[in-house]
Simulated scan of single mutants.
Amino acid sequence: MDYERAGAERKLQLQELESLRLEAYENYRLYKEKVKVVHDKSIKRREFQPGDLVLLYNSIIRLMPGKLRSRWDGPYRVERVEPYGVFHLSHPSSSELIKVNGHHLKLLNGEKMAKNQELEIFLLEDPPIAGD
C-alpha cells in the first residue's frame, strides 16, 4: 500500500516539475521577445542611394591600432544597391566594384554638407602669452 501511495506522489511531483518547466520556457520566450523589440529599436537603418559618397570601415586597423590612424577608408561611390543591405562600391582610382555590407559604411560628411548648404566656421586664435 505504501508503494502505491509513493508511486502516485512521485507521478504528481513529475507532473508539477513538467508544468514548472513549461512555465519557465514560456517566460523565457516572452523575455526574448521583449529584448528583441528593444534591440530592434536601437538599430539604425542605413539607407544609401546610388551615387552617394560613403566611407568604408577598415577592420584591419582594429587589430593594429594607431592613435591617429583613421579607421575609415574612402571616399567610395555607391554604384548599386541590392536587397538585405548589400552595396556595390567603386573607388575613383579603380574600375572594379567592391561588394560590402551596409553596416561597414557611413555617409561622407562632405556629402551631407553639400545637401544641407549650411556650414559653421570657427576662427581659432592663439592664447595670450603670460609674459606679455
Rank of each mutant, 00 (worst) to 15 (best):
K11T: 04
Y25M: 07
D52N: 15
G85K: 05
M113W: 07
E120W: 09
E26S: 06
L68H: 12
R62I: 07
Y84M: 00
A130H: 11
R45W: 06
P92L: 08
E33W: 07
L105V: 05
G66I: 13
N109D: 14
D52C: 11
Y76F: 15
V54G: 06
L12E: 09
P128M: 14
A114R: 15
D52P: 04
D40T: 14
E23I: 04
P92M: 10
L22C: 05
L124Y: 12
V78Y: 00
A8F: 00
Y76L: 01
K112A: 11
H88I: 08
G102H: 03
G7M: 04
M64T: 15
R71C: 09
K112Y: 10
D126H: 15
E33S: 10
L108A: 14
G85N: 04
V81W: 02
P75F: 05
S42C: 09
L123K: 11
M64G: 05
R46F: 11
P75V: 04
Q15Y: 03
Q13T: 00
K32Y: 08
Q13C: 05
F48L: 10
S70R: 12
E79C: 07
N101T: 12
R5W: 02
M64L: 14
I121L: 15
L68R: 09
H103D: 02
N109K: 12
V37I: 14
A24T: 03
G102C: 03
M1C: 03
D132K: 09
E120Q: 08
L55E: 10
I98A: 01
S70L: 08
V100F: 08
Y57K: 15
K44W: 10
I121T: 11
K34E: 11
A6I: 05
M1Q: 11
A114T: 08
R80P: 00
L22W: 05
R80K: 12
L56A: 09
L14A: 03
F48Y: 14
E23V: 06
R10E: 03
L89N: 03
N116E: 15
K36A: 14
Y28D: 02
V100H: 05
G51P: 06
A114S: 10
G74V: 09
S95K: 09
H91Y: 02
L108Y: 14
R45E: 13
Y84P: 00
K115N: 08
D40C: 08
K36M: 13
L63P: 02
A114N: 12
E9D: 05
L14H: 02
Q15G: 04
R21C: 03
N116L: 14
K34N: 10
R69A: 12
